[in-house]
């Protein structure tokens, strides 16, 4: 577990990212049917994969969040976090580019929150930077 006890920045980075992932999954786990609607609205996945994605994705987020917070399986968790954020970012940008005005569904499943796609993209980029920092520290930096 030598990875866990890296620089303070690394420690806080994984803690913050982990908590954000857990927080993001909370409402989706409570309302899987609503979240399925959001996934559907993205108009990216084939219909048959919508329900599975809506059920699976939040639990993956929770598990990744817990692993990050407790410093377990960090290399694997960081790979998946990066992959996931990349997928989210691509999906957001893809729909922004084709002019589909849909809710992000990133942190909430409610319909009341107005969504601003640019804001969602920027937020995702911010998380991505954090995740890439962790990735760099584990896999690419000299001391790793």
């Amino acid at each position: 577990m030598e990875i866990v006890l890296k620089t303070p920045l690394f420690f806080w980075g994984r803690l913050v990212l982990g908590l954000i992932f857990i927080f993001a999954a909370f409402e989706k786990i409570l309302n899987p049917a609503d979240f399925a609607g959001l996934v559907f609205n993205y108009q990216i996945l084939p219909d048959r994969l919508i329900n599975f994605t809506a059920v699976f994705l939040p639990w993956m987020e929770v598990l990744l969040g817990v692993l990050l917070v407790f410093g377990l399986w960090i290399p694997g968790a960081v790979i998946l976090v990066n992959l996931l954020l990349l997928i989210f970012l691509s999906a957001l940008m893809f729909n922004a580019a084709r002019g589909l005005d849909i809710q992000c569904g990133c942190f909430s499943t409610g319909g009341a929150m107005t969504s601003h796609v640019t804001l969602s993209i920027l937020r995702d980029v911010g998380l991505m930077v954090l995740a890439l920092y962790l990735f760099y520290n584990i896999f690419l930096s000299e001391t790793s």
Partner: peptide, 11 residues
């Protein structure tokens, strides 16, 4: 949710 079924008729 029905995992394998196409549940999208709800939407």
């Amino acid at each position: 949710l029905p995992i394998l079924a196409d549940g999208t008729s709800r939407f």
